[in-house]
């Protein structure tokens, strides 16, 4: 028994016509149409296109909601192992349609999807959501694109583990995957440098990310009435690390009471952090979490109150996404507790 595939193409690849026929409404045909033949040939019977959706590019753009509903209904009924769209090369509206409909099929029907297009196609903006095989910028690249897409499609249908983007030939999707290169890192570095020095093209293995920003909140008006909380990424925990926060790559954060605690000391607190020399923090945890000073300010009335709970994580090797999740979670707790400001310390 072979895997069942539904294919999406536009009016042009269905041989209906060019721009003048781009208005045609979606239509469902049995079996393969046009480029579907190349997929079927690559799959050699292991998978087969059971139906093809044809839709005009302008129609999809102008009636996206209706077209999508119609196509989803057909795909749901057919319940294929994979939904494949395109390849769209550098056709902008076609690429957009392929990516959008594929994403809808994945999100709403939970069916595996794949599409292919040129890297600068606007449809490629969805590359973090669906797998997109990079292709040449014109249909002349079909001979290469079809087998490449067919190969990855078959891997998906078989449920095999996805390799790194450069191994399995999809556009980098923000998920880093390890794999073994042919040459060791130092050799790759020397080659990359020689290309850079000669002004020849080179591909970085890790493109630098861009960072988002959050606007600052208004200042605290009156410190003497404010409740201030202490938080740290320096891993300060009660002695013995009762919640087993990992020394690196932590999977959870700690919430601990300091109600009635005048100062931290060697007997009561230590650090779980594995990234720095722990000796100083273990000997005197106030060096990371300044409970002693905050208590003095509280007594003096300089601040209203030191919040009874402190929040702690280990920054060392902990993924940014986890750290973000921890902080977002305890920020809500702080809000509910009426905390007015936070001092966050890092090691």
């Amino acid at each position: 028994m072979s895997y069942r595939v539904v294919h999406y193409i536009n009016q042009f690849f269905a041989n209906i016509g060019g721009e003048e026929m781009a208005h045609v409404a979606p239509e469902l045909r049995e079996g393969f149409v046009g480029p579907g033949l190349a997929f079927n040939q690559s799959w050699k019977g292991e998978a087969e296109i059971v139906a093809t959706v044809v839709c005009g590019d302008s129609h999809f753009a102008e009636h996206e909601k209706e077209a999508q509903e119609q196509i989803l209904a057909w795909v749901k009924e057919l319940n294929p192992d994979l939904f494949i769209a395109g390849p769209a090369f550098n056709a902008g509206r076609y690429g957009y349609a392929c990516a959008t409909i594929a994403n809808a099929v994945k999100e709403q029907l939970g069916i595996k999807v794949l599409t292919g297009m040129y890297e600068e196609n606007p449809g490629a903006d969805l590359k973090d959501k669906i797998l997109i095989v990079p292709t040449a910028n014109s249909a002349a690249g079909m001979r290469k694109a079809a087998p490449a897409m067919a190969k990855l499609a078959l891997k998906l249908m078989k449920g095999e583990k996805l390799g790194a983007s450069c191994e399995d030939n999809y556009m980098p999707n923000g998920i880093r995957v390890n794999f073994f290169e042919k040459e060791r890192g130092s050799k790759r570095a020397v080659k990359m440098l020689l290309n850079k020095l000669a002004d020849k093209p080179f591909v970085t293995e890790y493109p630098m990310p861009s960072f988002d920003r959050v606007a600052p909140n208004p200042a605290v008006k009156d410190l003497s009435k404010a409740t201030i909380a202490l938080c740290t990424s320096g891993g300060i925990v009660p002695k013995g690390n009762p919640d087993h926060i990992e020394s690196s790559s932590a999977s959870h954060y700690g919430e601990y009471s300091i109600a009635g605690v005048e100062a931290l000391c060697e007997a009561t607190h230590e650090t779980a952090h594995g990234g720095y020399d722990p000796v100083y923090a273990n000997a005197d945890a106030n060096r990371v979490l300044p409970v002693d000073v905050m208590r003095e300010f509280e007594r003096e009335g300089k601040i209203g109150k030191l919040h009874d709970l402190f929040y702690t994580t280990v920054g060392n090797g902990t993924a940014v996404a986890s750290a973000k999740k921890f902080a977002a979670e305890y920020a809500q707790k702080l809000l509910q507790a009426g905390v007015n400001a936070v001092i966050m310390t890092s090691t």
Binding site: G174, I175, R176, V177, N178, G185, S186, R188, A189, M192, L193, K196, F202, T204, E205, Y206, P207, M208, P209, F211, S249, G317, T318, A319, V320, A321, S322
Partner: peptide, 27 residues
């Protein structure tokens, strides 16, 4: 890289566009 167990996090604690030629030893 320290991109998280799911590989979805930002890999380095710091970044700059001038670092445009990077070789990585993996996540």
């Amino acid at each position: 890289e320290y991109a998280g167990q799911d590989g979805k996090s930002q890999s380095l604690a710091d970044a700059d566009p001038l670092a445009d030629a990077v070789v990585t030893g993996g996540n």
